[in-house]
Design a protein around this nucleic acid. Structure first.
Lengths: 151, 151
DNA sequence: TCCATTTAGTTGGAATTGCAACTAATTTAC
DNA sequence: GTAAATTAGTTGCAATTCCAACTAAATGGA
């Protein structure tokens, strides 16, 4: 097998190129590449707990806390205390966020179009399902490892 | 289309999980997740110029310079001036690097095995070719953009 | 009930990375 | 042949991210 044929190589290139694209495209909105996953989750389910965002984005809770801080500063979200659990907080989109929803969706789906430009319809569907399965397998492996470490 | 179905989401998850896996697995070798792409390129073509490494890894020249600095400190590579072009330098693997080649290859191919664990042989081949084409499309797009900006 | 454990969230530190500005050497153009 | 432009590489800065340590609140077992 060609020594370039290991999964991490292609994933790394695609991730880094995507980050470059997003930084440039989201700059006019004052949104960094790291903040958009949180907005996407909230557009789906507004008002969820910060902990839910952590799970939905598969990101570290520290990372999410910092991204939320920046979205607060930019006025895209507001934070409300949760009366049932005083440790927790719920995150809500502002009208400023709702105004840019379609812009954000356009930027994200354009990247999909760019990288799958020469794909057939079948290939476009296929690549999502393969990536989704890989992400699931990776997650399962890391979870197992974490459980092992706890022993 | 499901709002989770945009390419960047899966790529991001897979990239971040891979970085976690690599940091842990390469720690005993004192290699960070960011250094291994350079070693991989050198195992393929030892003694190439730093500029060649930049192109082969698709990474920024500043990033490569820093990773090379750490590999030098760890004694995995040596740097030699290039007499034909006194700005440039050539990078060579040390015996310490050759000793860990098979360990590194094992770690990298194990990740491929983990994420494609439930894939058929055909799917394993397919996913590489799809990722490769996506990376190529992304690169072409960003290159075009860069040329446009120069105007 | 009370103490131990778990959970939600914050903060500091370090690694990875891209960009921009810089130096020094080379190449190109006139 | 010299000045301008390009190229190889370094460095500082900022963004993204994970981890670990921490606080405060909630949960659970004796």
């Amino acid at each position: 097998m060609d020594s370039e044929q290991y999964m991490g190589r292609w994933i790394s290139i695609l991730y880094r190129y995507n980050q470059m694209y997003l930084s440039r495209e989201l700059e006019p909105l004052n949104i960094g590449a790291g903040q958009h996953p949180i907005l996407k989750v909230l557009f789906n389910r507004d008002g969820i707990h910060q902990e839910d965002i952590v799970h939905s984005t598969c990101m570290d809770k520290g990372t999410v806390a910092k991204s939320i801080k920046r979205l607060l500063e930019q006025g895209y979200i507001v934070k409300k205390g949760c009366p049932e659990d005083r440790r927790a907080c719920r995150i809500f989109l502002t009208s400023k966020a709702h105004e840019i929803k379609s812009d954000l969706d356009t930027v994200l789906s354009r990247w999909t179009d760019i990288v799958t430009a020469d794909f057939s319809k079948e290939e476009k569907v296929l690549v999502f399902s393969l990536l989704q399965r890989m992400a699931y397998n990776a997650e399962q492996y890391l979870l197992e490892k974490k459980v092992e470490d706890r022993k």
